[in-house]
Design a protein around this nucleic acid. Structure first.
Length: 283
DNA sequence: TTCCAGGGGTAGA
DNA sequence: TCTACCCATGGA
């Protein structure tokens, strides 16, 4: 089915906005320019959602094509994010002028906040290669298999992880010291103590949302800032080693986290989007 | 062997 | 608030 897209939507820019397309159950084909996601439908069926833009229009191919799948696609590609204010801001700043014509500003995210929380924790203090391995082990060990391609599995629910013991999870997922954090979050969701999805629907002030995210085990300033971006809040930069490198090149010296934050201070509520899509000389 | 990667938690100042 | 230190893991 063909999906009507906002005027300022770019499938290519969204998919390539950061590394999520390389983490299961996403798979990206550079040759076909198509993104696949193994989706656990509420009916219990696991299906493969294939997204591409063969004629410049977003096309979705799935065994199940209903409102739920369409909603998941719109969610993953952030199609309902409004960028008008951000683009107006960019047009007032010469350095950011390239962003609106390129239709940048949307990031690839997961259908559930739990999934993005687990992914982000798996990016902390490790290499990208190890992040992909960690996420792959979680999906392989606990995800529901596709009925006809059982080697392809959906991202597990919190309940599927919590059904195992911490020892079992640690042995299978091998997240190092992150095991306890991810298992605790999954267990709390499964027990009904924690509801991450309410962070999406409730209209929290940004500072409250940030504080709520920081209460999650394994989630610190970097991870919380990442998750805020996925929730459409851009007033905190997820300063990581890459941010320090880029700002360092821009300033011609090595910089601390504090200096990296200071570099983006002028971009008010758009700091994180500016970091992601700033026309860095190195790119 | 040592270092470190898209940091987090804690203790102590 | 800031700094120092440890934290599993696996590749370089």
């Amino acid at each position: 089915m063909l999906i009507p897209s906002p005027q300022d939507f770019s499938f290519d820019q969204t998919v390539k906005s950061h590394g999520w397309r390389a983490l299961l159950p996403f798979t990206w084909s550079e040759d076909a320019q198509s993104l696949e996601y193994i989706y656990a439908h509420s009916s219990g069926t696991v299906c493969i959602i294939k997204m591409s833009t063969p004629e410049g229009v977003l096309s979705v191919d799935c065994e199940i094509e209903d409102e739920e799948v369409l909603g998941a696609v719109r969610q993953m590609l952030q199609m309902d994010i409004l960028l008008d204010d951000f683009y107006a801001y960019c047009e007032q700043h010469q350095k950011l002028a390239s962003i609106p014509p390129l239709k940048q500003g949307r990031l690839l995210v997961s259908p559930s906040i739990f999934e993005d929380v687990v992914r982000v924790i798996c990016t902390t203090n490790t290499t990208w290669a190890q992040t992909t391995s960690m996420v792959a082990r979680i999906v392989d060990a606990y995800g529901s298999p596709h009925p006809t391609n059982p080697e392809r599995k959906a991202f597990p629910t919190a309940q599927q992880i919590a059904a195992d013991t911490l020892e079992g999870f640690s042995t299978k997922a091998k997240l190092g010291y992150r095991n306890a954090s991810v298992y605790k979050i999954a267990s709390d969701i499964s027990a009904g103590i924690l509801n991450l999805e309410e962070l999406r629907t409730n209209d929290f002030p940004a500072t409250d949302l940030y504080k709520r995210l920081l209460t999650l085990p394994g989630v610190g300033p970097y991870a919380a800032s990442c998750l805020m971006i996925y929730l459409g809040r851009y007033d905190r930069v997820n300063v990581d080693s890459w941010a320090r490198t880029l700002v360092g090149k821009e300033l011609g010296r090595t910089v601390t986290d504090k200096e990296a934050h200071a570099f983006f201070e002028e971009y008010v509520e758009w700091k994180a989007l500016v970091y992601h899509f700033y026309p860095w000389a190195a790119r």
